[in-house]
Write a protein that binds this DNA or RNA. Structure first.
Lengths: 140, 140
DNA sequence: CCGCTGTTGAGAACGATTGTCAATCGCATG
DNA sequence: CATGCGATTGACAATCGTTCTCAACAGCGG
């Protein structure tokens, strides 16, 4: 209920290379911002693809699982974005979705220490900053 | 799509004191952990209340809006918890849901500075740590 | 006590996501 | 290169959390 355990999926399983998954990967890579599965599906269809919605959902799930994409929940829907493989956080414009990847060793350390201090193990953390980027700010 | 703007709801509006909203507030206060609207509704019904599900949703939304409850998304559903009015973050057990409120002035400062450094204004941040608490860890 | 409104409960409606299942395709193998 | 197993796909139905609708109801200021 609270949170799925990462150890519940020990087996990434076989993973075939298909046109569809590659197409989703490419479409995702072509977007600088976080996009929803539905939006990605629509833009792929408009670009001539015949990929199915369910396939887009499945592909995004596996990409996120494999660490090739970051996922976040916003406004009741899941948003995805191609991202660098190393651990990082995000600074996201809540108007246009423009995203900056952040490294923050100090925050990592803090999270680990706080968890340990309270007897918690296997700490994971969610750290995202939302704001209005410079260009959106002037456009008001 | 990305994130609702806090300034979109400038008017908290009048807010009447009703038995139902008080009941929801009380039910929420009686839980140490984050609970879903559905779970809260069920426990209230089992306790003899005849409150409607929609009302629970509405009450939780207003409580969160008024800063009397914290909300977070987990596993595709919204979870709520009565919380102290001051700004804080959470350390949450992903097995039992036990929650510790955290103060972290350093993180607040960091978030503000990072946002400013990238030209972002009106920064808000989401910082939560998930882990397995001591008692759940030994129970394995 | 009245009346104006915000609120409620039941159920329908909704939208995002996932499940189902037969057809298809990747890929290792012979 | 032909073959076969099984993962993957696409269309569609189903599910699930949440919100909407609307008539009945209940705070609360006067």
């Amino acid at each position: 209920m609270i949170h799925a355990d990462a150890t519940d999926a020990p087996d990434p399983g076989p993973r075939r290379t298909t046109k569809q998954r590659e197409a989703v990967r490419a479409a995702l890579a072509s977007s600088e911002e976080f996009v929803s599965a539905q939006a990605l599906h629509q833009s792929m269809r408009q670009a001539g693809s015949t990929v199915g919605l369910a396939t887009v959902y499945r592909a995004l799930a596996t990409l996120a699982e494999d660490g090739e994409a970051d996922a976040l929940q916003s406004g009741g829907e899941a948003l995805y974005r191609a991202c660098s493989p190393s651990h990082h956080h995000h600074l996201i414009c809540r108007r246009c979705g423009r995203t900056v990847e952040l490294e923050a060793a100090a925050v990592e350390r803090w999270a680990g220490q706080v968890a340990a201090a309270h007897g918690f193990v296997e700490p994971e953390h969610v750290v995202d900053i939302f704001g209005v980027c410079a260009s959106c700010a002037v456009a008001r």
